[in-house]
Each structure stands twice: as C-alpha cells, then as structure tokens.
C-alpha cells in the first residue's frame, strides 16, 4: 500500500547541489511496524518528509493507497496528509494556546467534521492513549510523556493509513520513552501501520522490520525476528 520507487531528493544551496536521497526503493504493507534508522545526515528526515507528503521528490515515484503523489497539487497533498497520514514529532508540535481536546480536533476540522462528531472522535482517541480525563488542560500544563500521548491521539484521530513517528522519544526520559513505544506496539497489534524514524538501535528494536540508511541509500532492509 506504500510504494517508494527509486526516489531521489536533491536540495539546492544556491548553486550547490546537495543530494539527500539517491535512489531509494521499498514497500510498506498494511499492518507493518517499520523502523527507519541511520545517523544524522543519512537522509532519514528527508525520507520521512517525503513519506509524510510534506514535500515532493526530485525524481522517482511515491505511491500511497494507490495514488502517486509526485505530480499532484499542493492542496491534494494536504488532503492526503489529512486523511492518510498521522504525524508524531520529536518536538510534540502541539498548538500551545488551545486545549488538549482542541489539539486533537484539528485534523478533523480540516476534514470538515462537525463539532459534535469532532468532540466525540477526539475524546475516543484521547481515551485510547489513556488521557480521557485531561481534556481541558493546555499543553503547558502536562508532562512530556502526556504531550506525546496527545500527539499520538491527534495522529490517530482520522484513522490514517500510516502513522509516521519522527524520533518520538527524543525529548523524553527513557522510562517515559518506553511507555510511548509500548503504545506504538499496542497500536500496531490493533492493525495500525507504523513507521518509526530514529537513530537509536534500542528504539528500532521495537519494530519488526528495520531499514538502515546511509548517505541517502538503503544499507540494509531486514525483518527482525
């Protein structure tokens, strides 16, 4: 259902070409738990932006749910992000002035869901991550681990095809990080497709398949037993 075909991404710093991805090919099946690993500069952030439909590849194809995205419009891309992709960031990226419930509602707003249904779906998503009781708090009133749970609820709320998590434990202590990773494991066992981007081997170990990137190419692509 996700197909990456010979994908290249080159950035231009003035006249200097900086290749970030130099031909990457792989597929992701429904229900997989995939980790993308590599040191900084390996191209994993670029790959995650492309998989998240935040950017267009310079060359190659990207198929998601039967749709190729390298030639579709900005607004169609926004729609795909909204409906097919759930993001979880290292920095949490919650909207600081709004409550937790409203944060989780944001993707539903852009989807055009009415207020009552929005409230209900957002509450359900928050209950799934164990935060059903803190709906009216603002992000600055809760802990880092709780923030990341809110972000996961927000990623889940539109029932996306994949959940993309970029270093989701990077800003958390190891115990809280473990709890977050367990949530991902749970979600995966419920059928959600999860792509975890990280540079830490121990974290990648939670996944059932690991792709290792080095200098914009795939170094290893193996299933963890």
């Amino acid at each position: 259902m996700i197909e990456v075909k010979d994908m290249h991404k080159t950035y231009f710093m003035g006249k200097i070409k900086v290749p970030a991805l130099r031909g990457v090919t792989f597929g992701v099946q429904d229900g997989e738990f995939l980790a993308i690993m590599g040191p900084s500069g390996s191209g994993k952030s670029t790959l995650m932006h492309l998989m998240g439909c935040l950017d267009y590849p310079t060359e190659g194809e990207y198929w998601i749910d039967g749709r190729e995205i390298s030639s579709i419009s900005d607004d169609r891309l926004a729609e795909i992000r909204n409906q097919k992709i759930g993001f979880v960031f290292q920095q949490f990226n919650l909207l600081s002035r709004t409550t937790i419930l409203q944060n989780v509602e944001v993707p539903l707003i852009y989807r055009g869901v009415n207020l009552r249904r929005r409230r209900q779906l957002a509450k359900e998503a928050l209950e799934k991550v164990g935060l059903g009781h803190r709906l009216t708090h603002k992000p600055n009133e809760i802990s880092g681990g709780q923030k990341q749970r809110v972000a996961i609820a927000r990623a889940l709320v539109n029932n996306p095809a994949i959940i993309l998590a970029d270093e989701p434990t990077g800003n958390l202590d190891s115990k809280t990080g473990q709890e977050i990773l367990e949530i991902f494991t749970d979600l995966n066992s419920q059928g959600h497709t999860i792509v975890l981007v990280t540079h830490e081997k121990e974290i990648a170990e939670y996944a059932r398949r690991v792709i290792e990137l080095r200098d914009g190419r795939i170094l290893k692509d193996e299933v963890v037993v």
């Binding site: 998240g52 935040l54 900005d74 607004d75 926004a78 729609e79 992000r81 909204n82 409906q83 993001f87 990226n93 919650l94 909207l95 944001v106 993707p107 852009y110 989807r111 927000r154 539109n158």
Partner: peptide
C-alpha cells in the same frame, strides 16, 4: 507548519 502537516490547505 503544524497545521499544514495536519491537513490545512492553503
């Protein structure tokens, strides 16, 4: 950026 990532159109 966050809003765009979550699906906000232009």
């Amino acid at each position: 950026g966050i809003r765009k990532a979550l699906g906000a159109k232009r």
